[in-house]
Design a protein around this nucleic acid. Sequence first.
DNA 1: CATGAATGAGACTTCATTCAT
DNA 2: TATGAATGAAGTCTCATTCAT
Lengths: 226, 226, 226, 226
Amino acid sequence: MVALTPSPQRQRRKEARPQELLRAALELFVAKGFSATRSEEVAARAGVSKGTLYLYFPSKEELFKAVVRNNIASLIAEGQRIADAFEGSSEELLRLLMHAWWRRVGDTDAGGIFKIIMAEVRNFPELAQFYTEEVIRPAYRLVSGTLQRGIDRGEFRAVPVREATQMLIAPMLLQALHKHSIGACGTTGLEIDPPRLIDAQIDLTLHGLRSAAPTKAPRAQKVASR
Amino acid sequence: MVALTPSPQRQRRKEARPQELLRAALELFVAKGFSATRSEEVAARAGVSKGTLYLYFPSKEELFKAVVRNNIASLIAEGQRIADAFEGSSEELLRLLMHAWWRRVGDTDAGGIFKIIMAEVRNFPELAQFYTEEVIRPAYRLVSGTLQRGIDRGEFRAVPVREATQMLIAPMLLQALHKHSIGACGTTGLEIDPPRLIDAQIDLTLHGLRSAAPTKAPRAQKVASR
Amino acid sequence: MVALTPSPQRQRRKEARPQELLRAALELFVAKGFSATRSEEVAARAGVSKGTLYLYFPSKEELFKAVVRNNIASLIAEGQRIADAFEGSSEELLRLLMHAWWRRVGDTDAGGIFKIIMAEVRNFPELAQFYTEEVIRPAYRLVSGTLQRGIDRGEFRAVPVREATQMLIAPMLLQALHKHSIGACGTTGLEIDPPRLIDAQIDLTLHGLRSAAPTKAPRAQKVASR
Amino acid sequence: MVALTPSPQRQRRKEARPQELLRAALELFVAKGFSATRSEEVAARAGVSKGTLYLYFPSKEELFKAVVRNNIASLIAEGQRIADAFEGSSEELLRLLMHAWWRRVGDTDAGGIFKIIMAEVRNFPELAQFYTEEVIRPAYRLVSGTLQRGIDRGEFRAVPVREATQMLIAPMLLQALHKHSIGACGTTGLEIDPPRLIDAQIDLTLHGLRSAAPTKAPRAQKVASR
DNA sequence: CATGAATGAGACTTCATTCAT
DNA sequence: TATGAATGAAGTCTCATTCAT
C-alpha cells in the first residue's frame, strides 16, 4: 500500500540514529523553542519518520533533556580538565577558558541551549534541578576556582569571588542568548565582535582585579593598552 | 457570577479592561511562556470571559505583541529623564541609574519581558525590529552616553565605550532573566543579592574605568576594599 | 473558513448534552466494546463534535465510568425498594423482581454494560471496586434477602443461600451477556424466549428435577407437557 | 539471547512455534482483551521476535481467531467422550461432566475463551457462526442429551429440556467468566468455591427449593399450574 | 526461518477562535 | 458589550505491519 520506496534509509546503522536525532532536535529547539517544535519536524530533519524518533526517545521532553546533556555535560568537563592542567598565569587561564568557551559553545548551536532553558525551564520543573546540578554549579566552580587561584597566587586582589564570577560569566552568556534571539533576526547596528568583547572584558575587569601595587606593573599596562 | 458590583464601577472597569487584560497576560506570559499560556487563563485572571478577550485583541499573538509594547515604552523614558537632569559625578549617575533600573524593572514582572522577548522573537519576526528600536537602542544610548560623559569630564579613562556598555548592562539583564527562569524554580545555592551585585559591579568596573591618577583618589580605595 | 453551517446544534441546551453523550456512548460501547469505540464516533452519534465530548467528560475512561454509573446505580435501588414494600409470597416476589429486571435491564442496552464490564474490568482496576460495591453487592443483597425471607417464612427449604442466589442470578445475567454478544450476531437456532426462561427457571428451581414420587408421578407429566 | 539451546531442541521448537504463540496469545488476550494486547508482547512471551509472529499468522486479527479456534476443539471432544462411555445414573453423569468441565476448562485459561468470545464476537462476525457450530451446539447436545437420558430412564421428571439445559450450564459458565474478569481484580467477599457451587447446583436443581413436606402441598399446585 | 529497525495511519486530547444569545 | 458552548485543526504518541539483512 505504501511500499513504493525501497527505503534506502533502512540501511543506516542504529548507532548513528540518536546523534542524528539529537543534532536535528538541537537545531530546531534553538530556532523555535521547545514547545513550538513538533516531534515530526525533528524526525523529518533527521531523515526518519515520526515513529522512529520514539524508538530512541520516549517522549519529546526526554529528547529535550538528552539534547541538553549531550551538548553541555562534556563541555563543562573539558573546561575543568584544561584548568586543572594549566600552569601559566591566572589571567592567561581566564582568557584561554573564555575564548575556548566562545568558540565551542557561544558561537555554536550549543549556545542556544541557554535560550531554551531560560524560556522553558519553568514549565519543566525537573529540568531546573538537572540544569542547576549539571551546568550552573560546574560552570561556577570552574570560573570562581580560577579567580581564587589568582587571588591565592597574589595575581588578583581579594575581590568578592561570587560577584566577580557573575560579572565574568554574564556578558558572554548574554552574547550567546543574544545570538540566538534578537541576533538571529537581523542587525541592530550595535553588534560587537565577541572575541573583542572577551578581551575588553578581561582587560577592564583585570584593572579592577589585579593586585594593587606590583609597583610599576609593566604587564598591566601592556594588557590594557592592547 | 462577578456581576455583584454596581453599574458605575462597571463603567469604569470597561475602560480599564485592556489594561487588566494586558497585566494578566504579562504575568502569565512571564510565568509560563507564550504558547503554554492559554487564552482562557488570561481572561479568567482578568476577571472576564474568553470571548471578551477577543473583543479587545484579535488574537493571542496580537495580545502578546501588545503586552511587549505596553510594558517597554515607559521603561526607557524614565531613565533618560533621570540622566538628563542629573548634575553629580558620572559614577554617581551610573549607580543611580542601575539601582533605579533594578528597583523599577529588574525586580518587577516587567523584567520578565526580557525573558519573553528572548524566548519568542524568532517566532515573531516583527517583534525584533520593534524591540531593537524601542529598547536596545535607547538603553544603549543611555548607558554609553553616561560613560562618554564620564570620559569627557575626565572621570573615566578612554575605554572602548561599546564594550564597556555591554559589560555594564549584561550582569543586571542576566539577573532579571535568571529571576524569571531558573531563579523561579528553587534555589541554586548561588543566589546573589542584586543590589550587592550592582555595587560590586560598579566598583570592579570603575577600577578599570577610572582615570589612572586623579592625584589621590581615596574614595576608590575605600570602594575596592569592601 | 468553515462557517458554512449556521450550526443549529448550538441551540440545544447544555443540560441535555451529557445525557445525549451518555446514551450514544452506551450504544457504541455495548456494540463494539470500550477500546474499539472511538471518542469521535461517540460525539458524532450524539450530534456534536469531538471537542464537545471533552467539554463534558475529561477522558474516554471517565466517559466509560459515567456510562456505568448512569445506567446501573438507579436500577438496583429501585429493585430494593420494590422488595422492601412487597407483601405477597416470596415466590411471587422472586418472579416480580426477575421479570422486572429483564424488562428494564436485560432486554435493554443497559444489559450490555455487563458485557463491557466483563471485557474491560481488568484494564481498569478502579472500576472493579466500583462495580463490586455498586452492583454486585446490592444485587446480591436483594436476591439473597428474598431467599432468606422465603426460608424464614417457611416457604422455602433451608438451602445454602449464597449458592442459591448465584443460581438464580446466573441464567438471567447470561441471557443478557448472550443478547449482546453471540445473540447479536445472528441466530443459533437455540434461542430461548427470556420471559419463558425466567418462569421455567423459577418453576424448576422450586420443584426440583427429581421425579417427585419415583413410583407414579402423574403431576410431573403435566408440567412437562407445557 | 535465547540461542543457548543446541540445535536439536531448536528443531523441535520450530514445529512447536505456532502452539507456543497461540498459548501466549491466549494468556494475554484473556488477561487484557484483544485490542489492549500488543503483538510484540505476544511474541515476547512466546520467546520470539515480533517478525516471527507474522511468519505464522498474517495479522493480529487472524491470530485472535486462531486462538479461539485452537482452544475450542478440545473442549468438545473431552466431554462427549466421557458421556458416551458412561454407564451409571444420569445424576452421576451430570455431576461427573460438570466437575470435569470445571477442572479441565473452567479452572483453566481455556475458560478465558468464553470471555474473549463474549467481548469480541460482534467485532469479528465470522467467529459467531464458528462458535455456534463448534461450541454452543455440541455443548447443548451434551447436556440436554444427558437430561433426556435421565427423563427417558425415569430418573428425572419430564422437564422442559431446553430451559433446564440453560439453567445447568449458566452458573458454571458465569463462574468461568467471573474468574477472568472481576474475579481477577481482587475479592468481592462473595466468592464461592466452584466445586461446592457445582454440587449445590445439582442438589438444588434436583431437589428443588420448596420446603419438603407441606403435607398435601396445596401451594405447590398453584404455582405449578400456572 | 528469524530479526528488529522503520514506517505511518490513526487514536486521544487540547485549545485558539467563533458566534448565537 | 459580554458570554461560553461549540468547533476542528493540530499535536503527541502508539502500535500493527513490513522488509532488508
